[in-house]
Amino acid sequence: MSRRASGLQAWAVQRLTAIYIGAFFVYLIGAVVLSPPADVGVWREQVGGGVASVAWLLFILALCWHAWIGIRDVVIDYIHPPVIRLGVLIAFGGGLVACLLWGVKIILLASGA
């Protein structure tokens, strides 16, 4: 059985990441509404806390992965010439990797690592 190829895997990952992103947003909005941070320092401490920083890192990873699958779907649907398709995928892929690294850097700085 080999269903590792892009179809099923991408579809399943898109749904799993969506569940995590959705759950994280519920947690985030709940946290901000129930105990709003007094200032940016407190907010930074909250984000950089042990469990919270892992949750944030997972969120950034899930968001980028989810966005990548979505973008790739749109590109596969609408952009057919291989060279242009590859160029657009590289541009978006590079942008998402940059966002991912930037997000990771922010979280690591907040956690004091």
């Binding site: 059985m1 269903r3 190829a5 892009s6 179809g7 579809w11 596969i76 649907d77």
Partner: peptide, 18 residues
């Protein structure tokens, strides 16, 4: 069943459905 499902794998045949 197995053969039919295997034949639908890949990004196009089934998974273009959004």
């Amino acid at each position: 069943t197995e053969k039919r499902l295997d034949a639908l794998e890949g990004p196009y045949k089934l998974f273009r459905c959004h």
